[in-house]
Design a protein around this nucleic acid. Structure first.
Lengths: 670, 670
DNA sequence: GGGAATATTCCC
DNA sequence: GGGAATATTCCC
């Protein structure tokens, strides 16, 4: 019996009914709303212009052709009866002084305060009239107890009865409403969890890719890193245009005060070194390739990192303040001077120059776990690669460098991570909501809260998971950004370590002319550009001229590379999304249309500072070299701090304590 | 109105309604009597032999075929409910001691004292049950009549008044609470939106990373791509162990029919070329580096891609089947023979070797938008790089190749792109969740839906964006994975194009022995493995042996590399998360502790297979090599599927009618 | 089998 | 517009 009943009845259930108190919105209201919305019915039933009422144009046709599709009958009267049951009222025709033929002008206009176009969520507020004079239990009790009253009181009482009914109805409505909300919240939580999971996955993949890139860069650094001899033209014949660049020597000033100021004078001591920039004294330093690490734990070996190749360029005695002295070169390792090229002497960097070495950068790195790793590789490869012209290497490296994510997350209010901050204030409310009955100081007693308002299926587990997910996913997000930033820094540093200017290298694609993706390899392009490198400029800084797309157009690069020698053999464009289309100032958002309008797109702080003049005379290595990265990662790291308390606060009792939530919890314990 | 009512209702009313006090006999009883009498229904409902009860033989068929003709429904349960309402009772089966299959023997027998064959006049005696415990008017009347009571009763009345007030206050409190809840729900929405934004950003970053990798690979392809002459040992001194590998020559057959069949015989024509593999005839083909593109649109130039450098090695006449002939070398370009190294002659690649060229692989690429790009680079670089020993190159490439995600993209049902596929059906459900109140027929009127439950500040925009974000973020996730996969394939192909075996290269890290991250460079490791490369093997197909951690230990690699020549100069470990700690079977989750407990941590398949013995004779290559990861991603892919329908189920009050509701509607119209 | 809410019909 | 009975559905 019951089985058959179930089997037969289930197909009848269009909308899954909530366990408690049936459906929140009666079927009639839902159907009515659908019906009015349905463009197919527009001829017979439709919204008023204002959307606050609806018309039935030809009730006979409407009954015949529409009603049956939604209801079990085709009686317009029954339809109207239902409308009345739900409190709809008919709006009389305004100017209808003259009676026309019913069929012609006849149309019905019904309205209800909570029946509006585009607002189906209001439907739950529409109350169906209860069976007349049917008091609920409590009311009945009340009434019975009130039985013995004076006539006057009885009168007032009877008046009260009506109020009681409305009160009961109101309570019922509220309960339904709350059931709805609870269900929705659960769904949202589930959705959120999926999202976080997705974010986790993405983070993992990102991390893997990052590792791959890091290793590739390490490798390339080992291959090209120490190659500093630009005088290969005599060995490998190169056309003049290419030779120009290296001849000019590479010296570039990166002078964004906030992001770190680094001066590289790769060829200091070389005769034609132009010193009009006022180089500060001090040893030339070779940047180090940092390896972004998410779980890195600093080990002694991290800082020792013997580098036999770099050992070929012994650090000056005054160096080694932060790190132990580099071990001397292994005797079995061939020295760079074994370079087969005739210009090996010039290829060897200035003896005064110090090899790769960690600077203040490392010590002040926001990511303390990150440790420098000196690059090293088979010297034979070095020798071999030394045959490349510097221009070639420069171009190659630029292609590797400026395709990286240029997001400088220097400001907590910037970029997407900052959005989390905005969510924070509501945390208390959210907390209340999730755990309304739990006092604010009650951090250990889990209770169902609102979510388990009606049915209490395991709210705690949901809570816990959710919270853990949330907090840690934010962490993951922060890690990703930090890693990307670190990668950015790494490549820039790396390229600078080669005596090249990453900014200059990307001049064609990210320079002052965002619309020209091609590389400029004319000699005068080698001039020192005081502007901060594009990778340090936030992409959103469109207000300034230099805010170009930092994404490097590798194809254009190749074209220019190949085209310089063979203009007719342009490298094909393979249609990469970022290559041709995104040379504008935009960089972060490939899908602008997707941006939620509700979330304000925050202005990045350096957008205001972008125009700041470079600090003159500060050319040498600055301890702030890595600051852009550290700031970024710091900000990213702050995300959990700022956002997580919100989540954890609300987060209910069972919320797993995240690192970020710790402080707030302690605060509570005060 | 009344006219229409009558007109429309009449066909439903078999028996004319009596004017006075409604019908004497309720419609149900009349219909029931007719139904049982109707010989057309004899097969499904009929009188008992005695005529004092009736049978329903097959209630399912009965409901389907009979009920609808008499009632407004087809629910047997409703029918039974009515019977019960009129006092019918079910007669238990007499001889049914044994429970048989319900459908078989199942029949229902109902009886009522006043329901007999041939005696419809008794029907008026059947009383429908009144509304239970419904103190209708009388109760209220009772109360009113009781009004005149004693003061004590009045007291109780005043007490009631207080209760009413408290009720009102309680309601007010509830309402405030609800406002809070709504606000918090909005916050959750905002949080969700941030999540989506975060996902978008991650996607962007990922894309940029991907671009970086692509460019690096392009570059490397340009550098190494045409290197086909392994006889560099005499130029660059190499230890014997390294020299062994290249001498064995590399030839690999990629034989996944779905991805395209490509044969590489990199050194065809070289004297010591071992041909025991039975190379298929045909021109030597060099794989091409595909450039993963998310928005790529294949352009004609993609396939033309003239390569002046490759032009230095003119393709054989039988080439150029897929791509136009390479332009001849530009006269201004230095030829490789200008190489300064003494072994320049040997450094020049084998003249018979053909340059990079698109193969079937490209045409059958899973990513249709991806277009082939011939790699090109300065032949001087080629020449220079040719001085590297093949072993060196092999090691280098392996470090580049096997740190990537090994997810093969060949099968739509595998990996994460399949997520999307699998997720597609649930998109509607998710839609419902986000916008449950929007009726299915309402395609043009946006409404707030659940999310804008209480306050309706611009719900439409939120909604819209949310949806866009949601769907597109999922898409983005797919793109990312596809790109990673493509990258993977690209690298493998690329490496194969160099005549190297990517799988073999990664034997140490991803081979049958997951616990040994070190490279195996013994000579016998160079044997040709006929098995398809991992990237072309569907991950889900193999329940077989070796799944290992695909993550390559670059540091170990470097150590082994450097150590081979100079054991005392081990490359420092920089503590990368994946370098030392992750050589175990885990691959996807660098932060196990971060995993939400609610989301079941799927056991990666290879965790169960880890101990499986390696397939004998299959040393480097196992079809299951890539399985470990795809399974994991597949599990991740299932998340949406599993959770999203749930979203809609709970979908709440304003839930739009689901597809399931449609049929019921039509059925209703019968 | 029955309570209870909604749906439909009939009637005023 | 609404009272009231019956009809249908959903749930326990």
């Amino acid at each position: 019996m019951a089985t058959g009943q179930v089997a037969l009845a289930r197909h009848r259930t269009p909308v899954p009914v909530q366990k408690s108190s049936r459906q929140v919105v009666p079927a009639f209201l839902q159907k009515l709303h659908e019906m009015v919305n349905d463009p197919n019915n527009h001829e017979l039933i439709r919204w008023s212009e204002a959307g606050d009422s609806f018309y039935v144009l030809d009730h006979e046709r409407f009954a015949r052709e529409v009603l049956g599709r939604w209801f079990k009958h085709q009686n317009f009267a029954s339809f109207v009866r239902q409308l009345n049951m739900y409190g709809f009222h008919k709006i009389p025709h305004l100017q209808q002084g003259v009676l026309r033929s019913d069929t012609d002008t006849e149309f019905w206009n019904f309205a209800h305060a909570n029946f509006h176009r585009g607002q189906p969520d209001l439907l739950c507020l529409i109350q169906r009239k209860k069976q007349s004079a049917q008091p609920g239990d409590e009311v009945v009790m009340d009434l019975r107890e009130t039985n013995s009253a004076t006539p006057a009181q009885a009168n007032s009482f009877s008046g009260q009865v009506v109020d009681i009914h409305s009160i009961v109805n109101g309570i019922a409505a509220i309960k339904r409403h709350q059931s709805t909300i609870s269900a929705e919240l659960n769904e949202l939580k589930r959705s959120n969890q999926l999202l976080w999971q997705d974010a986790m996955d993405a983070r993992t993949k990102h991390q893997k890719q990052q590792d791959t890139i890091n290793r590739i860069v390490k490798f390339l650094a080992g291959v090209f890193g120490n190659r500093a001899n630009p005088h290969k033209e005599d060995v490998v014949e190169s056309n003049p245009s290419r030779a120009v660049v290296p001849r000019r020597k590479s010296r570039f000033l990166i002078e964004d005060g906030r992001t770190g100021k680094v001066t590289f004078d790769n060829e200091k001591g070389v005769p034609d070194n132009d010193s009009e920039m006022g180089d500060p004294p001090g040893p030339t330093q070779y940047p180090i390739i940092e390896t972004p690490q998410s779980i890195a734990s600093p080990t002694p070996s991290d800082r020792i990192s013997p580098d036999p190749f770099l050992g070929a360029y012994p650090p000056p005695p005054h160096e080694a303040s932060h790190i132990p002295q580099q071990p001397t070169q292994s005797p079995s390792l061939p020295t760079p001077t074994t370079d087969a090229t005739p210009s090996s002497a010039q290829a060897t960097p200035n003896p005064k120059a110090t090899p790769f070495q960690p600077t203040d950068i490392i010590g002040r790195s926001v990511t303390p776990n990150r440790s420098p790793v000196n690059m090293e590789f088979d010297p034979r490869i070095q020798v071999v690669l030394n045959q490349l012209t510097p221009a070639q290497i420069q171009q190659l490296l630029s292609s590797l460098s400026h395709t990286l994510d240029p997001i400088p997350t220097t400001d907590p209010s910037s970029s997407s991570s900052s959005q989390l901050t905005q969510y924070t204030p509501s945390s208390d409310l959210f907390n209340q909501f999730i755990n309304p009955s739990s006092p604010r100081h009650d951090t250990h007693v889990p209770d169902g809260g609102l979510l388990s308002f009606d049915d209490h299926h395991d709210p705690m587990n949901l809570q816990e998971n959710n919270m853990g997910n949330v907090s840690k996913s934010w962490k993951a997000t922060a890690d990703i950004e930090r890693d990307v930033n670190a990668m950015n820094t790494d490549l820039d540093t790396f390229i600078r370590g080669l005596g090249l200017d990453p900014q200059h290298l990307a001049a064609g694609s990210a320079g002052s002319s965002p619309s020209s993706p091609s590389l400029h390899l004319e000699p005068d392009d080698t001039h020192v550009d005081p502007q901060p490198p594009p990778s340090l400029v936030h992409p959103d800084t469109s207000s300034s001229s230099s805010g170009g797309d930092p994404i490097f157009d590798f194809d254009s690069f190749l074209n220019s590379f190949a085209g310089s020698g063979h203009p007719d053999t342009a490298f094909p464009t393979d249609g990469e999304p970022f290559s041709a289309a995104n040379h504008g100032p935009i960089a972060l958002d490939p899908h602008p249309a997707l941006h939620p309008p509700a979330v304000a797109q925050p202005l990045l702080p350096h957008q205001h500072q972008q125009g700041a003049p470079p600090i003159p005379g500060v050319r040498g290595v600055s301890p702030a070299t890595a600051k852009r990265k550290s700031d970024a990662s710091e900000l990213a790291a702050q995300l959990p701090l700022q956002a997580m308390p919100a989540l954890t606060d609300t987060g209910t009792a069972t919320a797993t304590p995240t690192a970020a939530s710790k402080p707030s919890k302690r605060r509570r314990n005060k």
